[in-house]
Amino acid sequence: MTDDAYLFLVDDPEPPLGAPVTAVGDLACLETPAVRAWLDAHGVTAASPGVRLLPPEETGAIPAAAEKLPVPLSDEELNQLRHALTPPGALARVEEELLAYRDCAGERDALLARATAAGVPQHRIVELTGEDARTVATAAAQGQHPTSASGPRQR
């Protein structure tokens, strides 16, 4: 495995291997003399459908006979490339999971305080939630204060 991503040429972009360069966005490496010379030598542009890009961890999938060129990408460019390679359905599912996590995590402290107030021992809350014991203890202590947003207000 290498630390560089690779530009490579495919004769037939079906089935798709790698990402089309245009799907990744503006890449600084495309302006380098080495990449421009490589593209010119093969008679293609970065927008050609046969010009593809793979991140370092996937370069082993490039066919041995393919023309290829290692290119350094910034962390942001690598993230863009990996995003371009993610199937749209999979990306949507992960984003839904992240939203569900946000909704659940936003109520975490209130739930921990309610569990403690209901009499669930703190060690059992730790076992069930996987939360750190200090987190559970802190949430339980905050839930005992009358000014806590998670507990009922005293008059």
Results as ranks from 00 to 15, higher is better:
residue 74 S to P: 08
residue 130 G to K: 02
residue 15 P to Y: 08
residue 138 T to L: 11
residue 29 C to V: 14
residue 130 G to W: 01
residue 49 P to W: 03
residue 64 A to M: 11
residue 27 L to C: 02
residue 103 D to E: 10
residue 19 A to Q: 03
residue 121 P to L: 06
residue 81 L to E: 05
residue 126 V to A: 14
residue 10 V to F: 05
residue 128 L to I: 10
residue 122 Q to T: 07
residue 33 P to W: 13
residue 82 R to C: 14
residue 16 P to H: 07
residue 57 E to P: 12
residue 20 P to R: 00
residue 111 L to M: 07
residue 66 A to W: 06
residue 153 R to W: 09
residue 134 R to M: 04
residue 91 L to N: 12
residue 150 S to V: 07
residue 46 A to E: 13
residue 100 A to P: 09
residue 106 G to K: 02
residue 3 D to E: 14
residue 59 T to M: 00
residue 35 V to A: 12
residue 121 P to V: 01
residue 89 G to K: 13
residue 143 G to D: 09
residue 58 E to V: 11
residue 22 T to R: 15
residue 8 F to V: 05
residue 123 H to R: 07
residue 36 R to M: 14
residue 44 V to E: 09
residue 42 H to A: 11
residue 104 C to S: 02
residue 147 T to E: 12
residue 118 A to C: 05
residue 16 P to K: 01
residue 80 Q to T: 04
residue 87 P to E: 15
residue 79 N to G: 12
residue 136 V to M: 00
residue 10 V to K: 04
residue 104 C to M: 07
residue 21 V to I: 05
residue 13 P to R: 06
residue 148 S to G: 12
residue 146 P to L: 08
residue 140 A to S: 06
residue 63 P to E: 06
residue 33 P to G: 13
residue 54 L to K: 03
residue 90 A to E: 15
residue 87 P to V: 13
residue 138 T to M: 07
residue 38 W to C: 11
residue 24 V to N: 09
residue 42 H to Y: 13
residue 53 L to A: 01
residue 78 L to T: 12
residue 63 P to T: 01
residue 55 P to A: 09
residue 60 G to W: 14
residue 38 W to A: 10
residue 25 G to F: 02
residue 99 L to S: 11
residue 139 A to Q: 03
residue 107 E to C: 07
residue 129 T to K: 05
residue 74 S to C: 04
residue 36 R to V: 14
residue 80 Q to H: 04
residue 86 T to Q: 15
residue 43 G to C: 01
residue 149 A to N: 08
residue 71 V to F: 03
residue 144 Q to T: 13
residue 66 A to N: 00
residue 63 P to A: 06
residue 152 P to A: 11
residue 61 A to G: 08
residue 8 F to R: 04
residue 73 L to P: 10
residue 25 G to L: 06
residue 83 H to G: 09
residue 3 D to P: 02
residue 107 E to H: 10
residue 81 L to Q: 06
residue 5 A to S: 13
residue 109 D to V: 03
residue 154 Q to T: 08
residue 54 L to N: 06
residue 2 T to D: 14
residue 17 L to W: 05
residue 11 D to Q: 11
residue 31 E to C: 09
residue 124 R to A: 09
residue 40 D to G: 14
residue 132 D to A: 02
residue 37 A to H: 15
residue 66 A to G: 04
residue 78 L to C: 13
residue 130 G to M: 09
residue 49 P to N: 04
residue 149 A to C: 02
residue 67 E to H: 01
residue 18 G to L: 05
residue 80 Q to I: 04
residue 129 T to Y: 03
residue 52 R to E: 05
residue 121 P to I: 02
residue 103 D to K: 01
residue 122 Q to N: 05
residue 107 E to S: 04
residue 94 V to T: 14
residue 134 R to N: 09
residue 76 E to V: 12
residue 94 V to N: 13
residue 94 V to I: 14
residue 5 A to W: 01
residue 66 A to D: 01
residue 38 W to L: 11
residue 134 R to V: 04
residue 8 F to P: 01
residue 42 H to E: 10
residue 154 Q to K: 03
residue 56 P to C: 04
residue 37 A to L: 14
residue 11 D to T: 12
residue 34 A to Y: 12
residue 112 L to Q: 06
residue 28 A to Q: 12
residue 75 D to L: 08
residue 22 T to K: 12
residue 32 T to Q: 12
residue 132 D to K: 02
